[in-house]
């Protein structure tokens, strides 16, 4: 199975949101990293046919998704960043409605809805109106709707925002378990969501593809650029103004800083093994991260 993005660009009036991006996706989980406004959501919307590329094309199994039309939509599952709900629908009714939109037969849909309510831990609340759900519960119902048709291509935009740590782990494991025979593209700001399950990470900056590689190879790029140093409290602002500073930890002998820098930032600094959070900091400016 292959989903190919070929020289795709998207222009909104005077803003080029996605700029000549190309990549291929096969079975497995892909993490989508990028700061706000990097073009992640726009690209995802093009992948689920909510937006048409201004130029370039997207192919599924070698066929243009615009031509495949309903046939392509039949194999995708999508969780948008902000999930839309009908407040007066119960969770069960809502999922049955989405099932009918996806063309799932009533009996099969009923089974699938029960199964997914269980998976997202909402069985007990299936008869409650979704308008009365908490943010996390709404997110879980969103995850359930995206999985209703057993999609071959699952595209999820910030799926874990609003979930508590336990739910996040549960969702992460769920994605990992279903990714064997499908393409999963996941965009997130929470780097730990993809750290251990992503086959590859796609880094997008200002609408352009910067990297697409396995976490190991990406981390290799910054292996000499991560440092830890313990400094006095009054030195912290100086380091923050000169370097990209990640974790700041108060210790008995001062303040521990994790710094991303091309050169050794201080004589006291020690090299550290990089992680994805460091990678994120390395590619995106502090302002963008905020």
């Amino acid at each position: 199975m292959k989903l190919s993005v070929e020289n795709v660009s998207k222009q909104f009036k005077d803003k080029l949101a996605v700029n000549n991006v190309s990549f291929d996706l096969t079975e497995g989980v892909y993490g989508f990293l990028g700061a706000n406004g990097a073009g992640k959501t726009t690209l995802m919307r093009m992948l689920v046919t909510l937006l048409k590329p201004s130029s370039g094309r997207i192919l599924f199994e070698g066929k243009d998704i615009d031509v495949l039309d309903d046939k392509y939509r039949d194999v995708i599952g999508y969780l948008p960043q902000y999930i839309g709900l009908y407040k007066n629908f119960t969770a069960e009714k809502y999922l049955m409605y989405i099932a009918s939109l996806k063309g799932i037969e009533k009996e099969q849909a009923k089974k699938k809805v029960d199964e997914l309510l269980e998976v997202v831990n909402l069985s007990e609340h299936s008869k409650r109106k979704v308008g009365k759900y908490s943010g996390g519960m709404k997110q879980r119902i969103g995850i359930a709707q995206a999985l209703l048709n057993d999609p071959k291509v699952l595209i999820v935009d910030e799926p874990t925002s609003g979930l508590d740590p336990k739910e996040r782990i549960r969702f992460r494991n769920l994605l990992s378990s279903i990714s064997k025979d499908r393409i999963v593209l996941l965009s997130t700001h929470i780097v730990s969501d993809i750290e251990f399950i992503a086959k590859e990470i796609i880094v997008l900056k200002s609408g352009q593809l910067i990297h697409k590689n396995s976490p190991e190879i990406l981390l290799e790029h910054i292996k000499d650029k991560v440092w830890t140093v313990t400094v006095n409290e009054n030195e912290v602002p100086n380091f923050q103004s000169v370097y990209k500073v990640g974790n700041i930890v108060r210790q008995n002998d001062g303040v521990g800083l994790r710094i991303i820098a091309e050169e050794k930032p201080d004589a006291r600094a020690l090299q550290a093994a990089p992680n994805l959070e460091d990678l994120y900091l390395y590619y995106f400016d502090q302002e963008e991260i905020k």
Binding site: R45, L50, R73, I76, P80, Y82, G84, S100, L101
Partner: peptide
């Protein structure tokens, strides 16, 4: 209403979300 609630994202990306609906 679907535009207002954001439901259109889910509807329009589903199999029958454009013609049959």
């Amino acid at each position: 209403k679907e535009t207002g609630t954001g439901m259109n994202q889910i509807i329009l990306s589903s199999t029958h979300g454009r013609k049959k609906v």
